[in-house]
């Protein structure tokens, strides 16, 4: 157990070292999110009126946070695949180290990395007028929910990184799957504007429930509340999603890692 802990710490340290060594990664991850803020707050935002006259930027920011967290899966998948390609996973597997440490260390580092990105984005949000209108406990609860979701997304990323044939494919798959998921949600536009058959998808989409939950927690406008469970209990549904995703993808990732010796 002690071995698992120290080895995980070493692997986490090693993964986190990458951030200052390739600052471009974090910078562009943040710029991408800020680009979405600018695009929607200043370009499309005017054309998306909120009922009851809510502030669109306050409405938008929780969605941007959620969108950013969803892309954690891509970061993890690319990192995992890169380690595999460069022979590092083989080296780790040839060492007398705790086997789960490679995977746990990857997840721990990537969740930490996303927490850092989140802090920068929240500061940026503050600049464009986003506010937490409730209190510190609600702020922390919202951040906790986002990081919990980051955990689920990195678990998907671990599996994805071990399945795809190359870093490029990891990137491509992540973006083709993740972009639609973030758009088929309440992040940018009212879900009610979608065709009726897509509405339940958007309503149950974990990105929607995560966004709705943080909007509720922080007192940001959340005008499109459905009557179903995801509309009424978005935080609960988000947590359930996290549990389901972890229960499915974590064992799949672990099995994939083990089967490298097949």
């Amino acid at each position: 157990m002690n071995r698992t802990f120290t080895d995980t710490a070493v692997i986490t340290w090693r993964n986190l070292k990458r951030i200052p060594r390739i600052p471009e990664l974090a910078i562009f991850a943040i710029l991408q999110s800020i680009m979405f803020v600018v695009l929607f707050a200043f370009v499309f935002g005017g054309a998306i009126p909120l009922p009851n006259g809510g502030n669109y930027r306050e409405y938008l920011m929780p969605g941007i946070f959620a969108q950013t967290i969803v892309f954690a899966a891509a970061t993890t998948a690319v990192g995992m695949r890169d380690d595999l390609n460069k022979g590092l996973l083989d080296r780790f597997r040839s060492l007398p180290m705790a086997r789960p440490a490679v995977l746990i260390g990857r997840i721990a580092a990537d969740v930490t990395y996303n927490a850092g990105i989140l802090v920068v984005l929240m500061a940026s949000g503050y600049v464009v007028g986003w506010r937490v209108n409730t209190g510190l406990p609600e702020l922390l609860a919202g951040v906790g929910l986002l990081l919990l979701f980051a955990l689920a997304m990195t678990a998907i990323g671990v599996w994805l990184g071990l399945v795809v044939p190359s870093v490029e494919v990891a990137q491509q798959v992540s973006f083709t799957v993740l972009f639609p998921i973030t758009f088929l949600s309440n992040v940018f536009v009212p879900p009610q504007s979608l065709p009726s058959w897509l509405q339940p998808v958007a309503e149950w989409n974990p990105v929607s429930t995560l966004t709705a939950a943080t909007r509720d927690l922080w007192g940001n406008p959340n005008p499109y509340v459905g009557s179903g469970l995801p509309g009424q209990q978005p935080a609960l549904v988000t947590v359930l999603w996290v549990i389901v995703i972890l229960a499915v993808f974590l064992p799949m990732g672990v099995r994939r890692y083990r089967n490298m010796s097949r």
Partner: peptide, 9 residues
């Protein structure tokens, strides 16, 4: 191994 398996960063 066949390639230098070290962490470039």
């Amino acid at each position: 191994g066949q390639y230098a398996a070290v962490d470039e960063n």
